[in-house]
Every structure is written in structure tokens, then in C-alpha cells.
């Protein structure tokens, strides 16, 4: 088994002549926390879209554990172990917290014929509900489990996203700004949640602007600027990299 969960080879993607992602080649090590940083519009989310199959690259290849998965639809990539969260959380807001959590797991009752016979899926349903209960407790969400996902706070939504990652048990989780937009006192709570996921041996690939906190947990950092990969290294190297400072204008680094 390869030590690289994810490899992208010269991925490019243009929108109407603008190169959103330009020849990006990077690798994510198994079991690592890898950060992807860069100013707004540098192509980070587009890259995530391509890796998770939401968008197709114009050129280049994507490998998941050495298997070429370029052009796979999102549901196939999920089955390969790629989980993706969105910058603007895309939960099922008409459904409960518990239902959202259960949706990350494949059930034998997903098949309409099996769905008619409760005996085919009941045991599995109760098992995953137990598991969901544990995970929701871990993320302090067990009190709101039957609330609609639209009825919980923004911070709870972020936590639910992470609970769903843990529930889905992916090989690689692509987290698009898991902390951004929450009130400051929630930041350490969400970070703890991230650490919990890492403890379970998951590989995390994170887009985030809160560099201070991120660099404490990250093993490796990639920096993008205007669609290109401009630097990579250990967090300590990145902090002292002039090019990165320039791209970021030093604002959040100081």
C-alpha cells in the first residue's frame, strides 16, 4: 500500500479563459494533516471540487491510493474513500441532525426492494444509529439530534459536518474551511474535533484561513496563489517563506 493517499498530477482547470487551477501536482501522505492555504480566489476550492469529482479537470490525473480515478463521478469517489465538505455547508437542511449523520453510511435499505422489508435493514439501521449516537455525543450534538439541520447554530453545523466525516469513515477527508465563519470561542472546540478525527487515523486535507491554529496541527502545507502551487513544506518553513508572505500580504501571518 502506498504511503500517499492522494496524488494529483498536473491538474489544470479553466473557466472562460481564466486558469483557476494551473498544473497543480501535489501529494497527501496517509494519516497526515495536510493544509492547503492561499488567498481567496487562488483555486483551492476548485482543486477540491476536482478531487471530489464535482468538477472535471481539463487535464492532469488524480490518483487515490495509486488508482487513477480521473473523471470519476462524486459518488464513485466517495466509495473510494474520498469525503468532502463544502465551504458553505451543504447539509440536508430539511432533515434532522441524526438523519444527516445516517446519510453518510450506505444502508441495505437504500435499495427500494429491500426497503419494503424492514428485516433486511433494521439491524443495520440500529447499529449505525448506535454509532451515530456515540459520535454525536462526542461532538456535543446529542441534545439536538432530532432537530432539523436548519434549526441548529452555525457552530453546530460545522461540528455536524465533522461528525459526518467521522461517521462516514473515509480514507481521505477534504475539509473546505471547517473553522471559518464561527464565533471565536468555538474555534478551539472545532479544533479539538479535528484532532479527534485525526486520532482515528484519518487523513485530513484542509483548506483554512486560520493559519495559527492550523499550523499547530498540520504536518505539511501547500500554498496556492493564482491557480498555481507556489510553495510547500513544513509549517515552520512556510511561515518564513517570503513568497508566501508576499502572496498573503502578511496579513494573517503576523
Amino acid at each position: 500500500m502506498s504511503e500517499w493517499v492522494l496524488e494529483t498530477q498536473s491538474i489544470s482547470k479553466s473557466y472562460g479563459g481564466v486558469k483557476a487551477v494551473d498544473q497543480v501536482t501535489l501529494r497527501v501522505k496517509k494519516g497526515s494533516v495536510t493544509a492547503l492555504i492561499g488567498p481567496n480566489g487562488s483555486g483551492k476550492s476548485t482543486l477540491f471540487n476536482i478531487i471530489s469529482g464535482v468538477d472535471k479537470p481539463d487535464s492532469g490525473r488524480i490518483l487515490i491510493s495509486e488508482k487513477d480515478v480521473t473523471g470519476y463521478p462524486p459518488h464513485k469517489l466517495f466509495q473510494m474513500g474520498v469525503y468532502r465538505t463544502f465551504q458553505n455547508p451543504r447539509l440536508f437542511f430539511g432533515m434532522s441532525v441524526l438523519e444527516n449523520t445516517l446519510l453518510t453510511v450506505k444502508s441495505p435499505g437504500d435499495n427500494p426492494l429491500a426497503a419494503l422489508l424492514a428485516s433486511k435493514w433494521l439491524k443495520h439501521e440500529l447499529n449505525i444509529a448506535e454509532q451515530a449516537k456515540e459520535i454525536l455525543e462526542m461532538f456535543s450534538l446529542s441534545e439536538v439530534y432530532k432537530n432539523g439541520a436548519s434549526e441548529i447554530s452555525g457552530g453546530q453545523i460545522k461540528l455536524l459536518q465533522l461528525a459526518m466525516v467521522l461517521m462516514a469513515n473515509p480514507r481521505l477527508a477534504l475539509l473546505d474551511e471547517p473553522i471559518a465563519g464561527v464565533s471565536p470561542h468555538l474555534v478551539p472546540i472545532i479544533f479539538n474535533a479535528l484532532l479527534r478525527i485525526r486520532e482515528q487515523g484519518k487523513t485530513l486535507f484542509i483548506i483554512e484561513h486560520r493559519l495559527h491554529e492550523l499550523f499547530e496541527v498540520a504536518d505539511w502545507v501547500y500554498v496556492m496563489g493564482r491557480g498555481k502551487l507556489i510553495a510547500s513544506g513544513k509549517p515552520s518553513d512556510i511561515v518564513s517563506n517570503d513568497m508566501v508572505k508576499e502572496e498573503y500580504l502578511g496579513s494573517s501571518m503576523v
Binding site: 471530489s52 469529482g53 464535482v54 463521478p73 462524486p74 459518488h75 466517495f78 466509495q79 469525503y83 468532502r84 463544502f86 451543504r90 447539509l91 440536508f92 437542511f93 430539511g94 432533515m95 446519510l103 453518510t104 450506505k106 437504500d110 462516514a168
Partner: peptide
């Protein structure tokens, strides 16, 4: 409710 989100959760829409 959200076919794209469903497909990123492994559902064959």
C-alpha cells in the same frame, strides 16, 4: 434537497 451533496456522500443520484 441537494443532489450534489447527496452524490458527494456516495449516493448514485
Amino acid at each position: 434537497d441537494d443532489w450534489l451533496a447527496a452524490s458527494t456522500l456516495g449516493k448514485n443520484v
